[in-house]
Computed example of a mutant assay.
Amino acid sequence: MTRPIIGIPMGDPAGVGPEIVVKALADEALYTKARPLVIGDAAVLRQALRFCDLTLQIQPIEQPAAGRYQAGTIDLMDLANVDVAALCMGEVQAMAGQAAYDYIERAVTLAMDGSIDAMATTPINKEALKAAGIPHIGHTEMLGHLSGSADPLTMFQVEGLRVFFLTRHVSLRQACDLITTERVLDYLIRCTAAMERLGIAKPSFAVAGLNPHSGEHGLFGHEEDEQIVPAIAAARAKGLNVVGPVPADAVFHFGRKGAYDAVLSLYHDQGHIATKMVDFERTVAVTNGLPFLRTSVDHGTAFDIAGTGKASSVSMTEAILLAVRYAPHFIKGTR
């Protein structure tokens, strides 16, 4: 198969995104598997190369098909939307938030028209987005809005563990209220379809418990018996391969060992902690339910070290490679 074109919006210019991009693309081996295309700003990338003491050549291009995609060269769609002289590394700025949004918006356009085969995103800053007046709290919400996709699914993958999230950026109190039979069943149906699109036939799922010991039949809470168990029963009646609720202190361990293809986590930190404790740097986020494939690093803008060249590019590399792995299931044509 032809190496897929992976679009890489470079993220918040004041964060570590540009640095991890240039570091990842300095690896010649990456070019044997992918055609990486950066969507960003040439001046910011040149600055990142200086921070990281790298000498890669930047090649601005107008369309993805014009790229060289050769080691030693960074193919870039240059939006030229950052005043580097006014950019303060490691600080929240409206200019940086707007620029980060612009890169994502252009990447979505390219993915929707088939010019790129997948997207691997870099860190953005929620406060910078707010300062720029962007009405979305994060990548998932932006991608859903820009592509016209309702409630996209977030999946984390690290080693043999895949984790989906029933709730994401809401308070723990709100998350508990969102754990309903209808919602759990809907997610199990859609998560199964998402796994099948990633090439995993008849995937098996475990649903994590909410309460200690999954509630012990009402001793430590009633959510399992009243909401989760009925949802699992309904899913199984539809032919889905689902078990649970499995206590949260064990389900992720068994998932990593291969007992199930994926785990449905009930709230943000329940699954985040489990995956990041396996390997923080190699945890990759995958957004399902979009018309295109999107993977992402699973860390933030790291403002405390932005501009120092210290940021690790491991997660960026892993995100690109996972996009390469799953891209064949999304590619509609051959370039």
Score class of each variant (00 low, 15 high):
N81R: 03
A259M: 09
I74W: 10
Q63S: 15
L290D: 13
N288K: 04
P135M: 11
T154V: 08
I74F: 06
A234M: 09
E216H: 10
T167M: 05
I39G: 04
T122C: 03
L321I: 10
D83T: 12
A175P: 14
R183T: 04
M89P: 02
E182Y: 03
G309N: 12
I5D: 03
S115N: 11
A96C: 05
L79F: 15
G300R: 09
V38Q: 14
A128K: 05
R197M: 10
D298W: 07
R46Y: 11
G97R: 09
K33I: 15
I200K: 15
H169G: 05
A262S: 15
D249W: 02
L172C: 12
M95T: 03
Q227F: 14
P13A: 14
H299I: 05
Q63N: 15
S149C: 08
L188Y: 15
V158G: 04
Q93K: 11
R335H: 12
G138R: 04
P203H: 13
F330S: 05
L290F: 06
G144S: 03
E224H: 07
V92S: 13
T154Q: 07
E223A: 13
A107V: 13
E223I: 13
M195N: 01
A311V: 14
V170L: 12
T73M: 03
Q270T: 07
A100W: 08
M316L: 15
D225L: 01
D269V: 03
K310C: 13
I179Y: 00
S296P: 08
T275Q: 12
D249G: 02
D177C: 09
H268W: 11
Q157P: 00
I58T: 12
V243Y: 00
A34V: 07
A132W: 12
N81F: 07
Q270D: 05
R256G: 13
G11E: 10
F165K: 15
H253K: 12
M89E: 13
D261T: 15
D75P: 04
Q157H: 05
D151K: 01
L264C: 10
A26W: 11
I189K: 11
M119T: 09
I200R: 12
V284G: 02
G133P: 15
G67I: 06
R50H: 14
P328W: 11
T295C: 06
L210C: 02
Q93W: 14
A43V: 08
N211Q: 06
T32M: 03
M155V: 03
A120K: 12
G7H: 02
A201I: 00
I116M: 04
G209A: 08
G133H: 09
G221P: 03
L54P: 00
S204K: 01
G258Q: 13
R325D: 06
S204T: 10
E159P: 02
N125C: 12
V82C: 10
P9T: 05
I74K: 05
A323T: 08
D298C: 00
Y260W: 09
G148W: 13
T283E: 00
V242C: 01
A311I: 09
I124S: 00
Y69R: 04
T295S: 03
